[in-house]
Amino acid sequence: MEHLPDELWVLIFRYLHRIDILHSFSQLSSRFQQILQSYYENMNLINVSYRHYKILCEQILPLHGSQVRSLILHNSLQLNKFKEHIKQLPHLQYLKLTSDYDDEDSIHEIEYYVDRLPQYLTDLHIDGCFVLSSILMKVLGGKAEVPEFPSLTNLTVLGSYAFEQPISQSDWHCLCMHRNLKTLKIHLTILEDIFCILPSMPNLEELYLSSLLNVIEFEDEKKMNGFRTVARSISSKLLKFHFETGRLHQEPNDSCR
């Protein structure tokens, strides 16, 4: 089998679950380690079985956690169970935390992760659950002098904080500058909050915004003035602006094509 070229092993791997591939072929030889590199880098735990989850946490992460660059976790149970392993992924660059809309327990789990995110995270996606405004403030820097995540280039916060008090103007004005942030996908309960967010992102290139503004409210002159002000306040570097009423879909890109 040694003469079977790498590309044929990759073809064989297409019929195996990623965690099975890592379980079966890791630590065999430097050649296989090289082939497995991209499989270590991307971990998607959505719909993963308990057997696979156990193999990942007990056998793969302790040895190869530092190679993981991208992680997707789903629902409060998984978010809760994975807490003890997040510290094994010091080089994580992409993190997606998702949950079902009625999974309210996930709020607290997400807070835990946001408090412990690797400093050099570049992509953070929080989707599906109700996101407390405190989480949003934490990600955007809160009252700190420098951003919590200075490398962040893509931020998606599609949860809603409808059941919480609006963020006060004084809190918004304390946001740090996020000069590296290029893409923001955000759902805001109160459209006007975007005025406070945008000045902290001077180099934003893509903005996907949704708000609970509905058709009836389009007749509300005050709301419409607010929307016009948003349009005027957008960074001069912005290349793409997508706005929709209601709520952005899980994959805003699809609706923007």
Binding site: I12, S24, S26
Partner: peptide, 9 residues
């Protein structure tokens, strides 16, 4: 793939 599935390294 069927031969390998479930086997450790």
């Amino acid at each position: 793939a069927n031969m390998v599935r479930g086997k450790n390294s």
